[in-house]
Structure formats: structure tokens, C-alpha cells
């Protein structure tokens, strides 16, 4: 433990990990919807820092760009549209908090026990030996080219599907008036 604490990178990990967990806790407990979405920004930022500690710089940047840049904006739009008063709302949670907390504690215990007893003592590569993005690119264009194209198709399908679901169908009267214009 003393040796573990003597490495400065572990101090970075401790500070960022605590910040990540505190903001993740606020995401699921905050009584203000907008605050919950903004705490998700902090939690995902902490996750991105963890990716950098694990020498996965490209994934960290993708998280910052896609999640903090785009997905959170989408969430804030969703919140703004689906609830007019964005203030305090006491009925944001249901009354099953205790069973839910028990279940999540069990999930945490089982997951951490299983992964730590199986992989816990494995040494990670030293920080600073970053994965070069070129090898990621070679994997995407070489071995994983079919999944890569499939994922692109999924994104296109999600785009078209999102528009098709969310657009408001015109009533017959409106359709008539539009046609006459």
C-alpha cells in the first residue's frame, strides 16, 4: 500500500476517481434534472481522465467530443422539451429507494469481487506509453472493417429513425392547407 501511494499517478487516480464517483452519485440522486445532466459531464470527464491514465488517449478524446460535446447537449434539449418548469421536483424518484440501493450494492459486490479476484493483480503498462492512433486506425480499416461499416450503417439508421419518430405527423386538415399553398 505504501509503495502504491508513493507513485504520483495513483494520487491522480484517487482524486479523479473520488470526483467521478461523487458526480456519478449526484447524477442518480440530484433532485434537479438539469443538475443531473451537468453532473454527468463531470462524471464522464473523470472517466476520460481515467482513459488517459490507462494510456488510451484516443478513446479519451472521443469521450470528450462525443459525450461531453454532443450527447449532453442532446440530453439538455430533451430535458428542456419534456418539462416546462426546470426547477426543483420532489417526485423525481419513486419510493423503492431501499430495495434499489440493496440491489446496486449486491451488483457492486459481485462485480468487483469477480473482476478483482480474476484480474486484480495484473500490472498495467506504464503511463506515458500511449497507444498510437495509427494502430487503432489499422484495426478499423483492416481486421474490423465489416463491424466498422455496420456501425456506420447503424448511425445512419438511428438518424433516420430519430427523425421519423420525433417528427409530428400533420393532421389531415393541416395537410390539406399545406397542399393548397
Amino acid at each position: 500500500m505504501g509503495e502504491w501511494l508513493s507513485q504520483p499517478v495513483n494520487w491522480v487516480y484517487l482524486v479523479v476517481g473520488v470526483l467521478t464517483l461523487v458526480s456519478a452519485f449526484r447524477v442518480v440522486t440530484s433532485q434537479n434534472v438539469v443538475h443531473a445532466a451537468l453532473f454527468l459531464v463531470a462524471a464522464l470527464g473523470g472517466v476520460a481522465v481515467n482513459f488517459i491514465l490507462l494510456s488510451a488517449e484516443f478513446v479519451a478524446l472521443v469521450v470528450v467530443l462525443v459525450y461531453i460535446g454532443a450527447v449532453i447537449v442532446l440530453f439538455l434539449f430533451g430535458i428542456m422539451i419534456t418539462r416546462a418548469p426546470t426547477g426543483l421536483d420532489v417526485a423525481l424518484d419513486n419510493d423503492k429507494k431501499l430495495p434499489a440501493a440493496l440491489i446496486s450494492l449486491v451488483v457492486f459486490a459481485v462485480l468487483s469481487y469477480a473482476t478483482v479476484t480474476t484480474f486484480g493483480n495484473a500490472e498495467l503498462v506504464e503511463i506515458g506509453t500511449a497507444t498510437d492512433t495509427a494502430s487503432l486506425a489499422r484495426a478499423f480499416i483492416g481486421r474490423f472493417v465489416v463491424p466498422f461499416e455496420v456501425v456506420g450503417f447503424i448511425l445512419l439508421a438511428a438518424l433516420v429513425g430519430g427523425i421519423a419518430i420525433a417528427r409530428r405527423d400533420l393532421t389531415p386538415l393541416e395537410e390539406e392547407s399545406r397542399r393548397s399553398v
Binding site: W4, Q7, V9, N10, Y13, G17, T20, L21, A24, A43, V47, N50, L53, L54, V107, F108, L111, S112, T115, V116, F119, G120, N121, A122, E123, L124, I127
Partner: peptide, 13 residues
Amino acid sequence: MIASQFLVLAAAL
């Protein structure tokens, strides 16, 4: 850095 510190963080998240 050992693996278990990140695995526990992921389990908690």
C-alpha cells in the same frame, strides 16, 4: 498501477 483499482471504479460506476 494495478488493474483492480480501475476495475473497482468501473464496478462502482
